[in-house]
């Protein structure tokens, strides 16, 4: 939908460059300390999760039968578990899974929220009533409860299904906010202008309404990443989420908390990495919000 280079060259001659919005937002984002810290830390976490196993002498399936429940040493950087597994290797494996689950669930749920919220808010009437009712229903049923009930369904290795289910229970609050904003964007004159121009409603939603909510959606997707990671952790902690042999932050913390008193390394490393990851994501989300909203800039 943007002006192609040829058209520019043909019709308009020299064009003064205007900084694009993406670039403005990026500049403002990286100008804030918390944005930089959050981004750097998260990048580091990803690097650790996916490149770390390459430098680790142990893989997450290896068992060292000479070292059970040993504290950190040069041989096992984070120590070992009761089974002789290397904590470093297992933690990174769990982190990979948690990061992937968090990212995917956040993307799916935000997309769902955007579509449901904006359709409800734009069309109002019966569409809205139906969608709002479904939203309310899912809000009334706490997500944890349904996911926990369904947990026997997620067999081993079916974490993809788990991601979808997780996403299905994360979108409601965002969708309510999107709906409210879609109602007000619909009142905005540029949407009215498009309507009176004869642009079909669905095209208006995807071309005018959702793009104008993109700042909210991007921020929300970011924050949903942390929500998804936290929810996944809690569910897996109680055995309702990721099933063995897959490991995640939640399963590791559950195992670690039992042995934490006498073997702190089994708990604190993974708990620390979880907190740092989520903190980084939240910092990014907050800095993004400020970068998108010019008026909030002076607040920080």
């Amino acid at each position: 939908m943007t002006l192609s280079e040829e058209q520019l060259a043909e019709g308009f001659g020299a064009v003064s460059k205007v900084p694009s919005r993406t670039r403005v937002v990026a500049r403002r984002f990286f100008a804030s300390t918390q944005g930089r810290i959050g981004f750097a830390v998260l990048a580091l976490m990803f690097l650790l999760a996916f490149a770390g196993p390459l430098i680790s002498p142990w893989s997450y399936t290896d068992k060292d039968f000479t070292a059970f429940m040993q504290p950190p040493s040069t041989r096992h950087w984070f120590g070992t578990l009761q089974t002789g597994s290397d904590v470093f290797a297992v933690t990174l494996r769990g982190m990979q899974k948690s990061l992937v689950v968090g990212l995917l669930a956040a993307l799916i749920s935000t997309a769902l929220a955007a579509v449901v919220g904006s359709f409800g808010g734009y069309f109002l009437g019966w569409t809205d009533r139906t969608l709002s009712w479904v939203t309310d229903l899912l809000l009334v049923l706490p997500a944890f409860l349904v996911l926990a009930i369904l947990s026997p369904v997620f067999g081993p290795g079916q974490w993809a299904l788990f991601v979808v289910m997780l996403a299905l229970f994360l979108w409601m609050v965002t969708s309510k906010i999107v709906r409210g904003m879609a109602i007000s964007v619909k009142q905005r004159e540029f949407v009215q202008a498009a309507r009176y121009m004869g642009v079909p409603p669905v095209r208006i939603i995807f071309r005018h309404v959702i793009p104008n909510l993109s700042s909210l959606l991007i921020v929300d997707a970011t924050l949903n990443v942390s929500t998804a990671i936290l929810t996944e952790t809690s569910l897996s902690y109680f055995g309702f989420g990721i099933q063995p042999p897959d490991v995640s932050f939640g399963t590791l913390i559950a195992d670690g908390s039992k042995t934490a008193v006498y073997a702190p390394w089994t708990f604190w490393f993974v708990a620390g990495l979880l907190v740092v990851t989520v903190l980084a994501v939240n910092l990014i989300g907050d800095a993004l919000r400020d970068a998108f909203d010019p008026s909030s800039g002076r607040r920080r």
Binding site: E189, F190, A194, N212
Partner: peptide
């Protein structure tokens, strides 16, 4: 308000 802020004039 009448012009979509995300679009170019074109």
């Amino acid at each position: 308000a009448a012009l979509d802020p995300r679009m170019t004039v074109y």
